[in-house]
């Protein structure tokens, strides 16, 4: 039994030296899936990477999920000094909370009563993955990548988000070396809430900017 078995982890039953891949056996494989498996095996056989490194890397990405970003946002809501540091450098601020977001710089853009921010990558699909995990499919879709820079309010409405006309909608096209996340506005009626409770209001889409933070129930 591998120590990594269990909920939230990929099961890798022992079929000789090669991992069993239930997704492929269940739904059929494509040429690129074969290519991926072949490349991995070649790199391991040549000693360029190890199976342990592969496992660790997959586990690292599995550990990156919107809840991590939510914790950071909740801290920023609760602690103005932390918020200031977050707005200067997300990687450094996250490190204070023992969240290692790697070497690609992540910046936060703050929603205010006057500005609503939304993130897109028109050229590929850049995303603050080491903080909030891999992007949803729609973020990578042609429709989102094409239209968000040109008719952001229409796209936001498709997500059920209406922004008043006197609020500036500011689209960030993350084309280069930085990744962006939105620091959503703290919902009203949460003044006496602690960070754990606040974090539950921070959904993934609010950190992309297509939604607002959830309203307290």
């Amino acid at each position: 039994m591998s120590p990594h078995d269990g909920p939230g982890h990929d099961h890798e039953h022992d079929h000789g030296p090669h991992p069993y891949q239930p997704d492929i056996e269940d739904s059929g494989y494509t040429e690129r899936m074969v290519m991926a498996q072949a490349v991995e095996e070649l790199l391991i056989e040549k000693g360029i990477i190890t199976a342990d490194e592969m496992r660790a890397q997959v586990e690292l990405m599995d550990s990156r999920e919107p809840a991590l970003g939510a914790k950071v946002v909740a801290r920023a809501w609760a602690d103005p000094a932390f918020k200031q540091r977050l707005l200067e450098d997300v990687n450094k601020a996250a490190a204070e909370m023992d969240i290692d977001t790697g070497h690609i710089p992540i910046r936060a853009v703050e929603n205010t009563p006057d500005v609503h921010n939304v993130i897109v990558c028109t050229l590929c699909s850049c995303y603050p993955r080491l903080l909030i995990g891999l992007p949803p499919d729609w973020y990578k879709s042609r429709a989102y990548r094409s239209r968000t820079v040109r008719e952001p309010r229409v796209v936001l409405a498709e997500f059920g988000t209406e922004i008043a006309d006197d609020v500036e909608v500011r689209v960030h096209d993350s084309t280069a070396d930085l990744r962006y996340m939105v620091l959503p506005m703290r919902p009203a009626g949460t003044d006496d809430w602690d960070e754990d409770r606040l974090a539950e209001l921070v959904n993934r889409d609010s950190m992309i900017g297509v939604s607002l933070a959830s309203e307290p129930k």
Partner: peptide, 23 residues
């Protein structure tokens, strides 16, 4: 390089990443 082109509605689709994708 598709910013600004016409395209359809953003369908809010997502899927759990498959093991081969993570690899």
């Amino acid at each position: 390089d598709m910013g600004g082109l016409d395209a359809g509605t953003v369908e809010p689709v997502e899927h759990d990443y498959a093991i081969w994708e993570k690899r």
